[in-house]
Design a binder for these strands. Structure first.
Length: 450
RNA sequence: GGAGAGGUCGCAUAGUGGUCUAGUGCGGUAGUCUUGAAAACUACUGAGGGUAAACUCCUCCAAGGGUUCGAAUCCCUUCCUCUCCGCCA
């Protein structure tokens, strides 16, 4: 959400943002509704003022005067009710459109239509360290080479009794899966490792609710446009009744983490707030039926440790935090010794609410490509306006805060990179050093059949 | 899930149809006094909207709707909290 005054003053910039981000919004319709809304507000408020004055007067009037006045008021009341009804329907429409207004992207954000227009920003591998994207020779050396025929993670998982997709589909449904044995420990160990990392970086860790109310998802920007991606749950009564409040399974802990601060006026001294959430995440993945159907790449439920920062409304500070969050995720991948690249996400591939966004993609050998594992975003005050997260600055002025978030680690997707990059010629899989204490071994080998 | 009691300006409370422009205490801010601090005293102290601005303008007493000339107060729905009972990881 943006300030309507800001929208009025920046119509051209906004038109461009709507085009570049491919947002489906008729800005002129919104501006027209805004004009109507303000006119009606003035009208209804003056009716209200008349009525208020009359109500004050009435106890002082004689019976005859009162009767005459009441008749007069009935007429005013009729107009008032009409104007009010009109105002309500216009405000409803206005509010719906306001939720679709995108944030204006940063000047550094590439303009493009989809993920093919994202721009590589940096590369990293354990052998080469950071590599500049313009250094094409070195970039080509980033993917590790194997002296044997590699297996994909699904095959490794099956052979080492770590993953069971068949029974997962049978029990859970399409894209269901079981993790087994050492991989369960690695999966949980990753979460634990990420939480310890974030605590060391000053984050307060939270186990967040996955089941959230609508406002949290509207506030984060997942609603209204991403509704199809979210599971709605509830008992039979709640799902059937229009009146009962609905609950949803969040696709990330971000809505819960920022929802935690909704409708609050914070003190500037409390900022920046660094919080990290661990939660199960649910995504319906409708609209991706034919995509990534093999293995653990695209699943409907997973675990994630997420980083969220709420900072003061300052462009430089927002930029710095976006970089800082990116560096923390990079540090995690570096300690896991996984090759990755960072992409500067283009306008067409970023969400409507985002000001600037980096994705981190980790090398997945069997795909012969990088797969998205992290997403780092600066929303400026777009989410804070939706959720009413404000703070009192040093001059006592109340301002909307900035919000940012980035993945710390999401699993099982990251397990694809771990299993495939760490596989050995004999079909076993090494365990990354930093995870060995959780898995209890340095190598995962085939088990004797039971 | 059932029964009952509740939700008031940061906190605690008062307020059951017009005197509420929401009282009081605590907390907070500023000032007086003081070498400094504390205490005491005095003043101020919620958030939004409309307007170029002022403003004797409008809104907000959990949220939404209703009754009424007029609602914190009465009615309905939803959400939440507490107590008891039931079920349960």
């Amino acid at each position: 959400m943006l300030d309507i005054k800001y929208i009025r003053d920046n119509v051209d910039n906004l038109r461009k943002a709507i085009t570049d981000k491919r947002v489906d919004l008729d800005l002129d319709a919104l501006l027209d509704l805004d004009t109507q809304r303000r006119n009606l507000l003035q009208e209804t408020e003056s009716f209200q003022a008349t009525k208020n004055a009359f109500s004050k007067e009435i106890p002082t009037l004689s019976e005859e005067d009162k009767a005459a006045k009441l008749l007069e008021m009935q007429e005013i009341d009729k107009h008032h009710t009409e104007a009010l009804e009109k105002l309500r329907s216009i405000e409803a429409e206005y509010n719906n459109l306001m939720l679709l207004v995108p944030n204006i992207p940063s000047p550094e954000t590439p303009i493009g239509k989809d993920d093919t227009d994202n721009v590589p920003w940096s590369y990293w591998s354990p052998e080469l360290g950071h590599v500049d994207p313009t250094d094409t020779d070195k970039v080509a050396q980033i993917p590790p080479t194997f002296t044997f025929d590699i297996k994909d993670h699904a095959a490794l998982g099956k052979d080492l009794d770590l993953i069971d997709i068949d029974r997962g589909t049978e029990v859970s449904g399409f894209r269901g899966y079981f993790l087994k044995n050492e991989l369960v420990l690695m999966h949980q160990g990753l979460m634990f490792y990420a939480m310890e990392k974030l605590r060391s970086k000053g984050f307060t860790i939270m186990q967040t609710p996955t089941l959230v109310r609508e406002f949290a998802l509207t506030g984060s920007g997942h609603f209204p446009t991403g509704r199809a991606e979210i599971y709605q749950v509830g008992n039979a009564a709640n799902l059937e009744s229009e009146d009962k409040e609905k609950q949803f399974l969040a696709g990330t802990s971000e809505p819960a983490l920022i929802g935690y601060y909704a409708n609050q006026i914070l003190e500037e001294s409390q900022l920046p707030i660094q919080v990290s959430g661990i939660s199960a995440c649910y995504r319906s993945e409708v609209g991706s039926y034919g995509k990534d159907t093999k293995g653990l790449y695209r699943v409907k439920e997973f675990l994630k440790v997420e980083q969220v920062v709420i900072c003061k409304a300052d462009m430089v500070e927002g930029e710095n935090w976006l970089a800082k969050l990116r560096e923390i995720s990079e540090e995690i991948l570096q300690e896991l010794k996984l090759p990755y690249r960072v992409l500067n996400i283009c306008t067409g591939d970023m969400g409507a609410g985002k000001y600037k966004m980096y994705d981190i993609e980790t090398w997945m050998p069997a795909r012969q490509g990088y797969g998205e594992t992290h997403s780092d975003s600066n929303f400026t005050d777009w989410q804070a306006r939706r959720l009413d997260i404000r703070y009192r600055d040093s001059e006592g002025k109340i301002q909307y805060a900035y919000t940012l978030n980035n993945t710390a680690v999401a699993s099982p997707r990251i397990l694809i990179a771990l299993l495939e990059n760490y596989q050995l010629a004999d079909g076993s899989v090494k365990v990354p050093e930093v995870l060995q204490k959780y898995v209890g071994t340095d190598v995962i080998t085939a088990k004797a059949k039971k």
